[in-house]
Design a protein around this nucleic acid. Structure first.
Length: 214
DNA sequence: AACTCGGGGCA
DNA sequence: TGCCCAGAGTT
């Protein structure tokens, strides 16, 4: 049983070496703050639109100081194309104010402090820790959650548990690569609604695929 | 635990 | 043109 898991993990790790396209969906950023904003904007939002909107925003504004001065309604007008824009505008302005008031104008570098910012949950906090501060973390978004459960790398309906199970299973030096791979695989193959099991190299290791065949 | 926020993309 | 997709906060 543990052996099956090891075989499966080994197989996936070997396939990591096989190149998968660099995620152009990766949130680009020139500063921790820009990554924070981009990640808040990305919630519940499929894709590259976020990079475009973020670039436009940061041509005009740069620092928490700039954003803290904004009227959330004005910011909302600039980010309409990504949806949920009223919430996200409020989150970004309010987070900027908290960063100025409580964190010396610097994006906090700890998980617990990041969670104090509105619009920042465990997924967003983890993305910032990894992307801005090279701090080991394992962001569990819906791709990671779904793919891990289907493949049997994790088994839980709770995000926190999936995160713990993955961290226990995967050697820390592989967290980043595994994370990229899970997201890529979730987007391109192991899709939420119509997974392309026929082309999946891992179907023979997959709980979901086997259950489907029964 | 269920509901809300909102658009873009694709069948 | 309607259905599907993706997190965090609130009730």
């Amino acid at each position: 049983m543990g052996n099956q898991m090891n075989d499966k993990l080994d197989y996936i790790i070997e396939n990591l070496a096989e190149k998968y396209p660099a995620p152009e969906t990766e949130l680009n950023h020139n500063s921790p703050f820009e990554l924070l904003v981009a990640t808040i904007l990305s919630a519940q939002t499929t894709d590259v639109q976020v990079n475009k909107v973020t670039r436009e925003l940061f041509e005009e504004f740069n620092s928490p100081d700039d954003f803290a001065k904004l009227n959330p309604n004005d910011l909302a007008d600039k980010i309409k194309s990504i949806g949920l824009y009223r919430n996200k505008s409020k989150f970004i302005v309010e987070s900027s104010r908290i960063i100025l008031a409580d964190f010396d104008g610097m994006v906090p570098r700890s998980f617990s402090d990041l969670l104090k910012l509105p619009g920042v949950g465990r997924k967003t906090a983890s993305v910032v820790l990894v992307g801005a501060f090279s701090t080991p973390a394992f962001p569990v978004d819906t791709h990671v959650f779904r793919v891990s459960n289907r493949l049997g790398l994790a088994n839980s309906d709770r995000v926190e548990e999936v995160e713990e199970q993955l961290k226990d299973l995967i050697p820390e030096e592989l967290w980043a690569d595994m994370h990229h791979w899970l997201i890529f695989h979730g987007r391109e193959v192991c899709k939420a609604r119509s997974p392309k099991c026929e082309i999946c190299q891992l179907k023979n290791y997959c709980n979901y695929y086997q259950k489907k065949g029964e």
